[in-house]
Amino acid sequence: MPTLQEMAKKKAAFSSGHRLCAGCPAPIFTKMLTRVSDYDIVVGSATGCLEVGSSIFPYSAWNVPWIHTAFENAAATVSGIAAMAKVQAKKKPTAKKIKCVAIGGDGGTYDIGIQALSAAMERGHDLLYICYDNGAYMNTGIQRSGATPLGAATTTTPVGTVISGKQQQRKDLSRIMVAHHVEYVAQASIHNPIDLSNKIKKGIELDGPAFLNILAPCIPGWRINPDMAVESASLAVETRFWPLYEVEGGSYKVNYKPKQNKPITDWLFTQGRFRHLKNPQWAHMIEEFQSRIDEQWEWLLGQEKGV
């Protein structure tokens, strides 16, 4: 594995000059795509912030071949590319081996794109699907998704007098992907570049389907300052909201175990979207949030031990 310094000397898949928000962490992982591995890659994106912010005609932030076709179908579109890459490899065995990467936000992955994702994983194409989970439909202006955490205020789960933020827990997409028995499933975070780049490299280089779920804070959506994305992602991991783990060949490995169990409020109350939960009226939601985290963490450690 190249060091971060070595990686930084390689040309990034994604250039500066894009139109993502100041402080948006999406470029942290898109730049890595070409830096972690020597394979040539082709990228397909679902509709979303990254797509809109990287491709406004006639400009492109992509230094690699890139396509966007629609919202719900990044996995299907890229499975077509992967099939064609296979055809090309058969026709020209001497041609460079090309790896395919699909990228979607949580809206395009957990929700509208889950059918195409599930089927592409089941069919076993040689592709890495990266979900950058920022916990809502941010591109359309912060609406709740299946990834939005309990209690979060979004424009479709607003803070009211009788209902306060999202009333449901998020779904656990990574576990759904594990249930597909694909080669590799992992959760990573934009604040930990070594862990993140290791996981992107594994996902790209193995032959077969891989899924990587990356926590990517959203500056306007989480109502944090533009310099807070890395710190906020780090707190999500420290509070065990977002465990860093990987599943290879069915075996779980938890890549980072916080030394102390910080309360979830350490993460929640640094973000404007959860500010209303400070009101004692909603204390039960905090309890519910914490209890899910504790339960999931124990479950994960149990998986790692193989119990």
Partner: peptide, 8 residues
């Protein structure tokens, strides 16, 4: 490398 499906 070409970019396909730009915002237009």
């Amino acid at each position: 490398p070409s970019t396909w499906g730009s915002l237009d």
